[in-house]
């Protein structure tokens, strides 16, 4: 979809008046739908639909060897798959650059131990740990991918249950683990500090949150901030265009405010999740 100059001007004027094309304010989100446990093959999963944007996130865990310099910590890897279903531009290897950009940002946002406790994933110091694979599948792009992905990742991690290791025995170089047979015995991850990302898209003199794909086309650049408990875990400036330092600080403050609001909304939603009920793409 490409916009004409007149359409762009229309959007720009709307943002100036704090009345966007779909009637929202500058700091409003579009409606979201969140589902958890939709993929039975995975240890945890979530699907988020933010208006036209649709992402599925699954979590799988495997046993791995910790990094030599961090023997007490587990690992986490993000993999993004831009499905061609989202847009024909993603066909073949077309989505790879976007996927790398998003996965690097996520890795940066989740890199600190104060954001996500990696020591919980350690099984045996220096020998065995859990490795979490977070696989993100983008099914439809309607703008604001970063926010949607970060919410879905957090929900999927919330949904994850890691098998309980009851005991570990060491026999020379062999490490034997006794994993609990009981399916209800499992560890839940602590995601209270997991970051949420907020995209602030600069259109004209103002910034909007949750841009649609049309608004993204009018923007002169965007800042993505990852907020974890009111603090920034990563900041990324994308797109062309430049910002004045003062504007930048102002936008970061706005980002933190919106991030906290989003955080509250998500934890409230997660506390209300029902385990049963019809789910998936049929509804």
């Amino acid at each position: 979809m490409t916009l004409s100059e007149a359409e762009k001007t229309f959007i720009l004027h709307g943002v100036q008046e704090n009345f966007r094309i779909d009637g929202r304010n500058r700091d409003d989100y579009r409606p979201m739908e969140l589902e958890t446990s939709i993929i039975t093959h995975a240890f945890g999963s979530a699907r988020l639909r933010l208006a036209n944007t649709d992402v599925v996130v699954t979590v799988k865990v495997e046993i791995d060897v910790p990094f030599p310099d961090r023997p007490l910590e587990g690992k986490m890897e993000f993999f993004i798959d831009c499905s061609a279903n989202a847009t024909p531009d993603f066909e073949g290897r077309g989505g790879e650059s976007l996927a790398t950009e998003i996965s690097n940002t996520l890795t940066a946002a989740y890199s600190s131990n104060s954001v996500f406790d990696y020591t919980k994933l350690c099984i045996l110091k220096g020998r065995k740990c859990w490795k979490i694979y977070v696989d993100i599948l983008i099914l439809e792009c309607g703008g604001n991918l970063y926010d949607a992905i970060s919410i879905a990742v957090k929900a999927a991690l919330w949904n994850t249950s890691i098998p309980l290791v009851k005991s570990v025995t060491i026999d020379g170089n062999n490490v034997d683990m006794n994993v609990s047979e009981n399916l209800s015995d499992c560890i839940k991850l602590d995601i209270s500090a997991a970051p949420l990302m907020v995209t602030l898209c600069k259109i004209g003199d103002h910034c909007v949150v949750d841009p649609t794909s049309a608004e993204e086309q009018c923007s002169q650049g965007a800042i993505v901030v990852a907020i974890s408990k009111g603090k920034f875990s990563t900041v990324l400036q994308t797109g062309g265009g430049s910002l004045h330092p003062l504007t930048l600080i102002e936008k970061l403050k706005l980002g933190a405010k919106v991030g906290n609001r989003l955080e509250e909304a998500l934890s409230e939603t997660l506390s209300k999740v029902k385990e049963d009920g019809e789910m998936g793409f049929l509804n």
């Binding site: 093959h41 599925v56 798959d81």
Partner: peptide
């Protein structure tokens, strides 16, 4: 007609 078949990395029990 241009077709592409793809399988999500999480679709099978083994990643």
């Amino acid at each position: 007609i241009n077709c592409q078949f793809s399988m999500a990395v999480f679709s099978t029990s083994e990643r």
